[in-house]
Design a protein around this nucleic acid. Structure first.
Length: 609
DNA sequence: ACGATCACG
DNA sequence: ACGTACGTGATCGTG
């Protein structure tokens, strides 16, 4: 047995590392002391739990003063036994460890998930801001520094340095560091000591601000999302391989054209700007650092293309601008999507993206590795990669204009509430109020942009830029909007005033506290609307599992749920899913639109059957 | 490490 | 008094 000592918050702690089976007796005796709440953590070879070669290396248990670091290759059975005992665990970022334990030790998410407290969830409820946003951050290190011990070492950072010393990198070190490396073992043990102490500090704080119920809900949601991550989504491997090859050919072809105009690298804004200026194009827009801007919005008009990539016939297309936008798009799609799918798939051709249930400041969910919430939607080719399981069809149900409905409900604006109840198209309704019954398509576009501008806190200039309409039209539209929906303006003012004179935050109907940046109080409306919309979708996921429909679900995407069902029942199942998602929120109907897509996700976006 | 860019709701 | 577009994740070039 290796025994290490470490001081945490002025108290000497012990870190025990069993080496031989006979060392386990002391571990079992320690467990038998009857601690009802232990911290739990795992160390693995990498973040992608389902890629071939992923392995569990260490499992750590700990209380406030003693940690046990167990090698998974030697003591898997003892670890599984300890996990199955009737006991509650504190885990920082539990979804990850739940999946690791599910996959490598056979103790399922369902079995363990209900007995876990997640300190990351608790911390998010106290302050959702990342370090970069002026918050404490949500990592174990910054939280421990603030709540447990200001001198607590940066275990992740310290290990990264150790990886380098051993000739490995941040990416490879977790797999390559010798399993008996003392720093590795020490920090593995320290993580559970810190997590257990962190819980003792912040759990009462969550209770004191009245968020025990929300906390319970969020913990339940984390388990559901871990189940979705474990299920994953199936990809059409031959399709993805062909797609990648086609995209690379297209990228290469356009790159060759760009090279003829002196741009060796289409991804270098400097080179692109220089070459365009040399061709006599005017580049008037600037980036925040003052360089000429050459993004899509600048290049497409130079190539005589609109934002849907259709010819405008307004000028002679600049061949370089055309080649650059096409090459960049094909290259990005090949790398960020097709290649990522191939890199991250498991041995059964499924992807298991990480679904962060409590991610953004607004608690919005995020999906990463790969980013399935951000697949191109204007074109079906990327989404076509995802196929239903054999005999099933992809189905989806999305909320209709959920943020506008939430805004109407929260502000209590009678005109907007009535318009929603009457089932009219909100943007057309606004356009008519603002521009009269003879409103045009451009008028509706402006009305829509004004509606979004209200939700996002945007001003006339931004809306004018977005729509291409002139400032005076946008300004009068904004004024007419305020006159038509007076409560929305008052609601936004009220949130800002409260934030200015009281606590600098907004509180959502679910009780979530969302801190505001000093110089961006106008974001208050957006935060509460975005966060509340997220809470509605989160509640829908919980309700869907409660209703026995959980087995169908595949992925949440902000205001919709992607699912699958056996082909003969698909229409019926998605109708049921849609029904469960619907609710009445402050008297406003939150309605959903169920749809059977077909064999692939892309079939909902025009892929040929 | 950071800025620019581009993908989504 | 005025005006501010919100939230993410991934890749690439650059220093």
């Amino acid at each position: 047995m290796i025994t290490l000592h470490h001081w945490v918050a002025g108290e000497e702690c012990r870190i025990n590392v069993p080496e031989r089976p006979t060392d386990l007796a002391a571990f079992e005796a320690w467990l038998a002391q009857g601690d009802r709440l232990l911290a739990l953590d795992t160390e693995t070879t990498g973040l992608d739990v389902y890629t071939p070669g992923h392995a569990l290396r260490l499992v750590q248990f700990g209380n406030r003063s003693e940690a046990w670091v167990l090698r998974a290759d030697c003591f898997a059975q003892a670890i599984a036994r300890a996990l199955r005992q009737r006991r509650t665990f504190v885990v920082h970022n539990a979804a990850y460890d739940l999946l690791v334990i599910d996959r490598h030790l056979g103790v399922s998410v369902e079995e363990l998930g209900g007995r876990v407290f997640d300190t990351r969830v608790l911390a998010h409820l106290l302050d959702p801001r990342a370090e970069a946003e002026g918050g404490i951050g949500l990592g174990l290190k910054p939280l421990s520094t603030v709540y447990v011990d200001p001198t607590a070492p940066d275990t992740q950072g310290g290990l990264t340095a150790e990886f380098r010393r051993l000739g490995a990198t941040k990416a490879t070190g977790w797999a390559r560091i010798p399993i008996d490396n003392e720093l590795y073992l020490r920090y593995a043990g320290l993580d559970v000591l810190l997590a257990r102490r962190l819980f003792d500090e912040i759990a009462p704080m969550v209770r004191d601000i009245g968020l025990d119920r929300l906390s319970k809900f969020e913990h339940h949601l984390q388990v559901i999302l871990a189940i979705l991550q474990r299920r994953g989504m199936r990809i059409d491997l031959p399709y993805v391989e062909q797609l990648k090859a086609d995209l690379l050919i297209e990228a290469q072809r356009c790159q060759a054209v760009a090279a003829r105009y002196g741009v060796a690298n289409v991804n270098s804004p400097t080179q692109v700007a220089q070459a365009l200026l040399a061709m006599g194009e005017a580049l008037t827009e600037r980036t925040s650092s003052g360089a000429p801007k050459v993004d899509k919005n600048v290049l497409l008009p130079l190539a005589d293309l609109d934002l849907q990539w259709q010819r405008i016939e307004a000028r002679r297309p600049n061949p370089l601008a055309d080649a650059v936008v096409r090459s960049k798009r094909a290259g990005k799609w090949a790398e960020s999507y097709a290649q990522a799918f191939l890199d991250l798939k498991d041995s059964a051709d499924r992807l298991h993206p990480f679904i962060g249930g409590l991610q953004a400041r607004t608690a919005r969910m995020s999906v990463s590795r790969p980013p399935l919430q951000q697949l191109p939607s204007s074109d079906w080719t990327i989404r076509r990669s995802f196929i239903a399981d054999p005999g099933q069809l992809i189905i989806a149900a999305d909320y209709q204009a959920v943020e506008m409905r939430v805004l109407a409900a929260l502000s209590g604006d009678e005109t907007m509430i009535r318009a929603i109840a009457d089932g009219v198209d909100l943007h057309s309704f606004t356009a008519e109020k603002v521009f009269g019954s003879g409103f045009t398509k451009l008028h509706r576009k402006i009305a829509k942009a004004v509606g979004f501008g209200k939700v996002y806190g945007g001003g006339a200039a931004t809306i004018a830029r977005q729509t291409g309409a002139d400032m005076s039209a946008v300004k009068s539209a904004l004024a007419a909007y305020d006159a038509t929906f007076p409560e929305i303006r008052r609601y936004a003012r009220r949130l800002m005033n409260r934030a200015e004179w009281g606590r600098r935050e907004v509180v959502t109907p679910s009780g979530r506290h969302l801190p505001l940046d000093r110089d961006r109080l106008y974001a208050a409306t957006n935060y509460v609307v975005q966060s509340t919309s997220r809470d509605l979708l989160a509640q829908a996921l919980v309700d869907l599992f409660e209703a026995g429909l959980g087995d169908h679900l595949l992925l949440p995407v902000h205001d919709e749920v992607i699912a699958q069902a056996p082909a003969p029942d698909a229409a019926e199942v998605v109708r049921e899913i849609g029904k469960v998602m619907e609710s009445t929120f402050y008297g406003v109907r939150i309605e959903s639109d169920p749809e059977v897509y077909g064999l692939s996700w892309g079939h909902g976006y025009g892929a040929p059957a």
